[in-house]
């Protein structure tokens, strides 16, 4: 099922949690909503589910305007961060709940419901736990039951709020791969919220980066990482270094010196230069490069990270050096970013 979010705004007591957000989700896609706390990602998820009503704008499921439908009619599978399993029901009853509350002919027989529950338990690799109560399961198992319960109603979209947020790192990584497999096997359109970029980039077909109630960028992991379209995305995804620069005559300048990067299409004036610390070329002779003195140096796994102080302003940037580079405190190092991007100064 395609999902289209059209110009949606959501205010909580006048405070805008989402400002004019539009998003197209293709059928069968696995989408991650990624952003820091307060970016509006959970609000967007709850709006799609119908747990909140938009202040303005519409949400379409296929051609239908879902904003007009009650949450019960929307047929979404929602998995909460803390699972919200029904404590007084067995695992099988939890999974069968959505079928049991249906009315009339759409409600399967008790036997059929039981069969569906076992089938789903099988899918989430928990066969044999039908009779258990949620209190008797581990965190990872509860997560799987919650997912099975959401899938039992054959949802139009599957929505997951921080699906791995409450689990420890080990289980988290396992379940991540497993969720991808389940998605590929069932083909549900799936949206999940996370604040963990590694999770989003690894798992999702497309990542929606959000900040302060707005969508900053939508794209595949490669697009988001390699061509960030805003200072926020550059700073939020992966590691980045930035320097205040000036653009003049199609050249990038730091203070009174060109640094050997040409930007013929960039607008004149103040700007900020972004690059990845590992994406730099060291240069010997500095005519047209960035140079600074090493202020701090630390070993990070297979590489060495140094902080350089640049120019009279003593701006600090971080770059990565080979481990065997002889740089020490106060050594002068010159480099040029291999890939970089300019954003006009705010």
């Amino acid at each position: 099922m395609e999902v289209r979010v059209a110009n949606v705004r959501k205010e909580f007591e006048r405070f805008p949690a989402l400002r004019d957000v539009s998003l197209d989700i293709k059928s069968g896609e696995l989408i991650a909503l990624l952003g820091p706390s307060g970016s509006g990602k959970t609000t967007l998820l709850r709006l799609i589910a119908g747990l909140e009503r938009p202040t303005r704008g519409k949400i379409f499921f296929g051609e239908e305007d879902a904003s007009q439908k009650s949450i019960q009619e929307r047929n979404v599978g929602f998995v909460f961060q803390h699972y919200a399993l029904f404590r007084h029901m067995t695992v099988a009853d939890n999974i069968g709940f959505g079928l049991k509350v249906r009315h009339g002919p759409s409600r399967p027989s008790a036997k059929e419901i039981r069969r569906r529950a076992s089938e789903l338990l099988n899918l989430v690799q928990l066969s044999g736990l039908e009779k258990r109560y949620p209190a008797q399961l581990s965190g990872g198992q509860r997560q799987r039951v919650a997912l099975a319960r959401a899938m039992a109603i054959e949802p139009a979209v599957l929505l997951l709020d921080e699906p791995f947020g409450a689990l420890d790192a080990q289980v988290r990584r396992e379940l991540r791969r497993w969720l991808r497999d389940i998605h590929d096997a069932t083909g549900h359109t799936t949206v999940f919220v996370t604040h963990d970029q590694e999770e989003a980039l690894e798992l999702a077909d497309r990542v929606v980066v959000m900040s302060q109630g707005r969508i900053e960028q939508v794209g595949t992991a490669d697009e988001i990482y390699d061509t960030p379209n805003s200072p926020f995305v550059y700073g939020f995804i992966g590691e980045s270094s930035s320097l205040p620069v000036k653009v003049e005559d199609g050249q990038v300048w730091i203070a009174d010196r060109p640094i050997g990067l040409s930007a013929p299409h960039a607008p004149q004036g103040e700007a900020t230069l972004f690059f990845r610390p590992h994406d730099v070329d060291l240069v010997e002779e500095c005519n047209g490069c960035i140079a600074g003195t090493v202020a701090a140096s630390r070993r990070v796994a297979g590489t060495r990270r140094v902080e350089l102080e640049i120019g009279g302003e003593r701006q600090r940037v971080e770059i990565e050096l080979p481990v065997d580079h002889p740089a020490a405190q106060k050594t002068r190092v010159a480099f040029r970013p291999r890939r970089w991007k300019l954003f006009p100064a705010a």
Partner: peptide, 18 residues
């Protein structure tokens, strides 16, 4: 890790979530 974003719903719940 509880995302504080989720917490911020609590005070508003009363008036809306149908």
């Amino acid at each position: 890790m509880a995302d504080p974003e989720i917490k911020s719903y609590a005070p508003h719940h009363e008036s809306q979530s149908p």
